[in-house]
Computed example of a mutant assay.
Amino acid sequence: MDLAEDPDHEAVAAGVRAVCAEFDDDYWAGCDRDHRFPWEFYDAMVAGGWVGVAIPERFGGGGCGITEAAILMREVAASGAAMNGCTALHLTVFGLEPVVRFGSERLQEAFLPRAAAGDLHVAFGVTEPTAGTDTSRIATRATPDATIGEDGGWRISGQKIWTSKAEESEVCLLLARTGEAEAGLDGLSLFLVDLDPAHVTVRPIPKTARNAVGSCEVFYDELPVEGWRLVGEEGRGFRHLLSGLNPERILIAAEAIGTGLAALRRGIAYAKERQVFGRPIGANQALSHPLADAHARLRAAWLMVQLAAWRYDHGLPCGEEANTAKYLAAEAGFDACDRVLQVHGGLGFAEEYHVGRYWREARIMRVAPVSQEMTLNYLAQQVLGLPRSY
């Protein structure tokens, strides 16, 4: 792994920053307040070619890796977009990795060029209200039906929760049970399904933060799915999904770092400008040291993101690195936001300063897409060899 500055990576960061500069904090605060999807931002990112950056070139994408995608997401979040901006892009930028790796040629040709062009919006349906973190208990079922399509297919019924961007999306990468319940993870299959309103009901979940992009309950009622919409092999859906979970952790880590950087930028400016007792409050170590500590932690977490991304892009195992990056970045990002809010005092809760919005959105990443406790469980069991606690 070469830690020297890479001109290509610098160009990615500069290009993304140039697009994001057109959308200030007030734009994002308005989208969040009005529960309005940031279409103007999304369209600008499409026009810049950034949405398809990690989709292979043969499908019209940029052919870059998770490293470049992480830089993209860090810069989007750092611009002040935080999680709202990143979630608008996240699933299209890298969420279709299981289709890239395991999808049939027909599936790839049908959807990847459209994703690269930015005119296909994708949601991700895994979590269920009765299963939660225990994916082996997924109950949404795909039942074979020979009458669907030329070669048969399935009918899918069930319920998913926390499906972000379902209101805007045309398709969903959906994990459903095709085997017996006793088979656990080995009985799950992955599909790329249409969110057909004749068979699919989408209900937004009222929530505390990141309201520009909705998170939804999605109900599937006998949704017909043609056989060619299966991603990879039947019964190996969870294994195929794993190819997207480590990149997801890496991208979330980058987003957490970017959100922390956005907050830190405002905290530093405020600490220089705000005068109390005849001097800037940033002269007080009680405020300057927490900001310096936040900077150090964000820098360290970014190094772990780089390592995890480099290993993934080079085809090396990266479970330990991806989970470590997610854990460290989620802590560092939230701590940075929390300390900046403290620097602002009561004004940290005033919407005009935006740090309260960063704080709320940074907190999400300590819970999603996997909790901090589950990342520690992974490290304890898979890396340290400690006995399983659940």
Rank of each mutant, 00 (worst) to 15 (best):
R299C: 12
R236V: 02
D194Y: 08
A362T: 00
D8P: 04
L120Q: 00
L384I: 07
A283T: 06
L72C: 12
V122L: 13
D6M: 07
L89T: 05
P38V: 01
L185H: 04
G258H: 03
A88S: 05
R74D: 08
V100A: 06
M374G: 07
G179D: 10
L107A: 07
H9I: 07
F191E: 04
Q381S: 00
F102D: 00
Q382K: 04
L175P: 03
V202W: 06
K165G: 13
V93P: 14
D26H: 02
L230S: 00
G63H: 11
G267I: 06
E320Q: 12
E248I: 09
A292I: 01
R114I: 08
Q159M: 14
A166P: 11
V100C: 12
S189I: 04
V99F: 10
T163L: 15
G232A: 08
L120Y: 15
W310Q: 12
G244K: 05
E105W: 00
G158L: 10
A269K: 04
Y358F: 14
S189N: 07
S164V: 04
P317F: 01
R114Y: 08
G158P: 01
G30V: 08
Q285E: 02
S104T: 14
A176H: 06
A47P: 09
I161T: 04
A81M: 13
H35W: 14
F37L: 13
A181G: 10
D338Q: 13
L195Q: 10
T208C: 04
M83E: 08
N377P: 02
K165F: 05
P290E: 04
L230K: 12
I281P: 02
A254S: 02
R265S: 09
D293T: 11
S104F: 14
P290Q: 12
Y378P: 12
Y42F: 12
E128W: 06
A368D: 09
A146H: 05
E109Y: 05
F94G: 13
L120F: 10
T178K: 10
E109H: 08
D338G: 14
R366P: 06
E217I: 12
S371P: 09
D25Y: 05
E361G: 06
R297K: 15
V19W: 00
Y270G: 07
